[in-house]
Amino acid sequence: MKNFFAEFKAFAVKGNVIDLAVAVIIAGAFGKIVASFVNDLVMPLIAAVFGIPNFSELTATINGSEIMVGLFIQTVVDFVVVAFVIFVAVRQINRLKRKEEAAPAPAPVASPEEILLSEIRDLLKEDRQ
């Protein structure tokens, strides 16, 4: 049992697990921001254009069953906004990576030993010819 807890501690303290926990927390906060953006800004603008004050009340009734069309529209808009924000973020990250890759690496500086060995090699080549 002691070994089990030691193994669990080693697992829980690894950097990947902590990074994942931080990512989940940030994603939750980001989800609230996107939900507020969609509910408080985007949906009122869409509602103003279509003349429907509240999409959540938009329903369709088929054979006595109420279909929540407005909630579906809300979910689709949430998805589109999140997908667009993630696309823009990934695009910017890729652009920064390309700039880093495109920057030429500085020429390696040879150590005095390497310079001396290169000179010896060159002298030996001259003697053989």
Results as ranks from 00 to 15, higher is better:
1 M>G: 14
2 K>V: 04
4 F>C: 07
6 A>H: 07
7 E>T: 15
7 E>M: 14
12 A>G: 13
13 V>T: 12
13 V>R: 07
14 K>P: 04
14 K>Y: 03
14 K>D: 03
14 K>E: 01
14 K>H: 09
15 G>C: 04
15 G>S: 05
23 A>V: 03
24 V>C: 14
29 A>Q: 07
31 G>S: 08
33 I>A: 11
34 V>D: 11
34 V>S: 07
36 S>Y: 02
37 F>W: 07
38 V>M: 10
38 V>T: 07
41 L>E: 07
42 V>D: 11
43 M>E: 10
43 M>W: 00
47 A>Y: 01
47 A>E: 04
49 V>Y: 09
50 F>G: 04
50 F>E: 02
51 G>L: 05
51 G>V: 08
53 P>R: 08
56 S>D: 11
59 T>N: 09
65 S>Q: 10
65 S>A: 07
65 S>T: 15
66 E>M: 09
69 V>N: 01
70 G>M: 00
71 L>A: 01
71 L>H: 03
72 F>L: 02
73 I>A: 08
74 Q>E: 02
75 T>D: 04
79 F>D: 06
79 F>S: 15
80 V>H: 12
83 A>R: 10
88 V>W: 01
90 V>W: 00
91 R>M: 07
91 R>H: 03
91 R>Q: 05
93 I>A: 01
94 N>I: 01
95 R>G: 05
96 L>D: 12
97 K>R: 11
99 K>C: 00
99 K>T: 00
100 E>S: 05
100 E>Y: 04
101 E>T: 12
101 E>Y: 15
109 V>G: 04
109 V>I: 15
110 A>D: 00
111 S>G: 09
113 E>H: 05
114 E>G: 10
115 I>Q: 05
115 I>F: 04
118 S>D: 14
119 E>S: 14
120 I>G: 12
123 L>D: 03
123 L>S: 10
124 L>Q: 08
